[in-house]
Computed example of a mutant assay.
Amino acid sequence: MATDISGVGRPIAQANGLPNAHYTDPQVFAEERDAVLYNQWSGLAVAADVPEPGDAKPIEFLGAPLLLLRDKKGVVRVFHNICRHRGMILVSEPKKIEGAIRCPYHSWCYGTDGRLVATPHVGGPGMNTHEDMDRDTLGLVEVPSHIWRDVVFVNLSGTAAPFEEVNADLIERWKEFDSPHYHGGKSSNFQLDVKTNWKLAVENFCESYHLPWVHPGLNSYSRLEDHYNIEEPGKYSGQGTLVYRQIEDDNGTTFPDFPGLSDKWNEGAEYITVFPNVMLGAQRDHAFAIILEPKGLDETSEHIHLYYAKEDTSQELRDKNAALWKVVFEEDVFVVEGMQKGRHAPGFDGGRFSPAMDGPTHLFHQWVAEKIMDHRQKLAAE
């Protein structure tokens, strides 16, 4: 089923959003998986998920079994989580790899760098080598990956341009934050399971238009009129505020700032989506990353992680900060779930965009439509 997405690319005042099928149809979901999520640099996890050498975490990303691990040299890698022999899943739960990664089926073993290091009885009983089994060509298949702001981005198709090239403008925009980001620990990591298509979570995050009605607490000090749109066509979009207020404990203590920031960040903050599925927040004293995991047409897991400029920040203040952000993100749940239900209305045409307020959301729709059209043209040419 090829949807008509021509209306998405029109100027914002005349544009429609993506058609209903992009939120409700399994065939379109599969097309977006390939065109938008596999072919681009998508967020998979964070490096903090595997903090020490040998740590391994299996992750299923849109049906693809992957293995996130930190090798013995401390390098974070992503592999297909299958043995090269018969395709058996190698690691079924998070664990520490003490020696080698051993396949539970026939005990083929791999180093944490992906090399095939043992093939017991492959040449017959007691014969662990065979002239026709070249170990050098049978290592684990590594997935192209890149870490930025602790987020592990992957390109499943292996066809995307380098991450630093694709996201050069955003990296430059936030270069002042090019300093260590320390994960806040267990209390600074939480998950929201939402009954919605993953794109609706992005669309909602992109704009500040909904603040007065959905986030009255936040809007009481960071009002709609204190925000601005961030619009970089074909690259990223989001929103910023001019009145960021630091959180304090009962003694008036705040988190330490990231070093070397300009005055812009004294009361400024920005919230940007790295297309397709990573939502980031940059503030003077802490940062966050939200990785959207599409679980199905109308199921999304939001993995939220909070970061600080130093490792030894106050646990009490970290807990308070996490609780406040959790409230804000939970306030969005009824909205994105309500829009998902609304996409089943037969007469809905994708909706319209406010030229003044919805620019960031429209840019995301345009980017998705562009990637789908590119994918269709490539398939047609094959």
Rank of each mutant, 00 (worst) to 15 (best):
A30P: 08
V8Y: 08
I291Y: 03
V75W: 00
W265T: 01
Q377K: 15
E330Y: 02
L67S: 13
R84N: 10
D193P: 00
L363P: 02
L62C: 04
L37H: 13
I5L: 07
P144N: 09
D55C: 13
P259S: 08
Q283Y: 03
E316P: 12
K378E: 14
G123Q: 13
V122G: 01
G139E: 06
G359D: 04
D150R: 14
Q246W: 00
H130S: 12
E225C: 00
F275L: 08
S6N: 12
D193M: 01
I101W: 02
L200C: 03
A309W: 03
S188L: 06
A201V: 14
I171S: 03
P51K: 11
C83N: 02
A161Y: 05
F79Y: 13
P125C: 06
S107N: 15
S187Y: 06
A322N: 12
P162C: 06
D169W: 01
H227S: 07
K96D: 08
K371T: 13
P104V: 09
T313E: 13
D71G: 12
G87I: 06
L292G: 05
A35C: 08
S220T: 04
E232Y: 10
A201S: 09
A64K: 12
H344K: 12
K264Y: 09
F153I: 07
P51E: 05
V194C: 02
K73A: 15
D136F: 09
D332K: 05
I97E: 07
A47S: 15
M357R: 10
C83H: 04
Q40N: 14
R33M: 09
G240R: 04
L37Y: 15
A322L: 07
Y244G: 06
W265C: 05
L218R: 00
Y182I: 10
P94H: 08
G260Y: 03
T273L: 02
F353M: 07
H210N: 02
A380W: 11
D169K: 14
L69S: 09
H106F: 05
T300H: 09
N16K: 12
S42H: 11
D257C: 07
Q340V: 08
T300M: 02
D132N: 05
T24L: 01
G7M: 10
R115G: 10
G350K: 11
